[in-house]
Amino acid sequence: MLPEQVAPDGAADPVAGDGAASGHPQDEAGAAAQAAAQAAEAAVARLYGEPLLRLPNDLYIPPDALEVFLDAFEGPLDLLLYLIRKQNFNILDIPMAQVTLQYLEYVEQIRQSNLELAAEYLLMAAMLIEIKSRMLLPKRQDLLVEEADDPRAELVRRLLDYEQIKLAAKDLGALPQYERDFQRPSLPIEQGDAVVWPQVDAHDLQRAWMDVLRRARLTQHHRIGREELSVREHMSAILRTLQSARFVEFADLFGGQAGVPVVVVHFVALLELAKETLIEITQAEPFAPIYVRLAYSPA
């Protein structure tokens, strides 16, 4: 039956006849491609990749194939929460009669098609029926004064917790995820076995050497030595200098001294001589040169 549906007029195809009569392979290939394109356009369906020009008369479609579920639920709590939110019921005051009836109708539908899936829903249905039965029971006389616990309290707590987790999961799902919303770029780098050394410039070598010297100065040690200097010896040297000259300029007294420590001791010796009135330090006028001489002593 299939060859008749695919090409019912194959014997009267003028293109195929011309190709066969001419005997050229290119004309035959073109005719076959044109026939396949026409068959694909006229096909109403495909069976194992082959186009069907019309549906078979003995086609059977099972009734289960036409079942459509508009809402998909992840579990009994998801279904129960959907029924409550869809009808704007107060979750703290659930009308158990209406919700239980709607819940049982859905469970009956899935029980007919998938018994394993309906087992979990049947457990929740039994819980709903139990809560409904406990609410219908008359209250005892000793419990009228004190308010009894609501049988729906545990179910309400589970529904509220599930709703919070569901909203949190929805917020997490909205965040961008790796390999779903974005990809990390990658660039392959070819690495060879040969070692390639970088070119060192003379300026780079100079900067490296200066850096080494700078670090060496930071770690160098400074040694302080101790030198013994006598003030009395310098006092005697000053007196000998003044004995050979009447007046000596202040700066000339330090001409032969070398080093800061020696000059300081020499100056201290000069002050000690002035303190003991062995020498005199004089100046003719302001900003004039300072002279040093031996102290005058009457004969």
Rank of each mutant, 00 (worst) to 15 (best):
L2W: 12
L2A: 11
D9T: 06
A12F: 06
V15Q: 05
V15H: 06
V15D: 13
G17I: 14
D18R: 13
G19V: 05
A20P: 03
A20I: 12
H24C: 09
A29G: 06
G30A: 09
A32W: 05
A33W: 11
A35K: 08
A36F: 11
A36H: 04
Q38Y: 02
Q38S: 11
A39N: 03
A40R: 15
V44C: 15
A45S: 08
Y48S: 11
E50C: 13
P51Y: 05
P51Q: 03
N57F: 03
L59S: 12
I61P: 11
I61Y: 04
L79Y: 11
L80H: 04
L81K: 01
Y82N: 04
F89D: 00
N90Q: 02
N90R: 00
I91C: 01
P95Q: 03
L104A: 14
L104H: 15
Q109D: 05
N114T: 08
E116Q: 08
A118L: 08
Y121K: 06
L123K: 13
A125T: 03
S133P: 09
P138S: 08
L144T: 09
L144C: 05
L144N: 06
L144Q: 12
V145P: 05
E147K: 12
A148E: 15
D149C: 01
V156N: 08
R157T: 06
R158I: 07
E163G: 09
E163T: 12
Q164W: 01
I165Q: 13
K166V: 14
A169E: 13
A169Q: 10
D181V: 02
F182Q: 01
F182L: 06
Q183P: 01
R184A: 03
R184C: 05
P185M: 06
A194F: 05
V196I: 12
W197A: 10
V200Y: 00
R207D: 00
D211Q: 04
L213W: 07
E228A: 15
V231C: 08
L242I: 08
F247R: 07
E249S: 02
E249M: 07
F250G: 01
A251D: 10
A258T: 13
V262A: 15
V262L: 10
V263S: 00
V264S: 06
H266D: 06
V268P: 04
K275N: 13
K275R: 15
E276V: 10
L278V: 07
F287D: 07
F287G: 07
I290Y: 04
I290V: 14
A295W: 01
A295R: 05
P298R: 01
